[in-house]
Design a protein around this nucleic acid. Structure first.
Lengths: 123, 123
DNA sequence: CAGGATCCTGCAAGATACTG
DNA sequence: CAGTATCTTGCAGGATCCTG
């Protein structure tokens, strides 16, 4: 690791990052990645099962997110050549290292619903 | 809190969330919010000092993020009527509750730079 | 110094329909 | 069942210039 002007500089996917936050956000940023990882954190799920757990996501977006997560090495895609086709998604060991981060994010959001009645209108 | 179809549903800022992850991401999502919160985590900084810490951000984006973070109650904006004008930003108590989350995110990114030499090209 | 105003662009995300 | 293929849209983010 090279220190440049007293600063760590990383390169990943042809992008350059100047702080560790950016790096993580590149893996879990966007609207859907944390949610997908959340539902896979302790179970293996098929495409349709994931779609059922996350009703608001479109099939296109789910497909894109799964592909990106797989390319990043966070999830594993297993194809079983049955009829009808079965494809299962699960976290890799690398992906599992993200669980504490995701749980930290989820925990904070949950705590908001439990303690704050003004900012958070619960329906 | 009302449970609807075995599911918690939250409403905030006229948006509806179906899981705790979304709620947190609404506060720290996007490209810049975590970074700004990071530099304010243990110090009070002026607009120009923040800009210096985050060279890549434009003044417009910094202004927008600071305003959003203030509206969310995460940071405090203090104006000192001096010439030249002095404006200081710092975390509120509420904002400080996010520090463990931000640190969790940063820690994961940092660990990547320390352990992985293949996925992460360090320049 | 600490922003605001404007204009602009690209890409994340959505809608809808279709397929091996 | 597990996705693709198109087309479209909204908004995050950028560039540039301006101001109390």
């Amino acid at each position: 690791m090279i220190i440049k002007d007293k600063e760590y500089v990383f390169k990943l996917h042809e992008k350059t990052f100047h702080c560790a936050l950016d790096i993580t956000m590149n893996f879990i940023g966007g609207k859907w990645k944390t949610v997908v990882l959340w539902y896979l954190r302790n179970q293996t799920l098929r495409f349709g099962e994931l779609k059922k757990q996350i009703p608001d996501i479109t099939e296109k977006m789910l497909s894109i997110q799964l592909k990106a997560l797989e390319e990043d090495g966070l999830i594993k895609r297993e194809v079983f050549p049955e009829i009808p086709l079965r494809v299962e998604y699960s976290l890799t060991d690398f992906g599992k290292t993200l669980i504490p981060v995701i749980e930290s994010i989820a925990k904070w959001g949950r705590s908001l619903g439990e303690t704050d009645g003004e900012m958070l209108e619960v329906i």
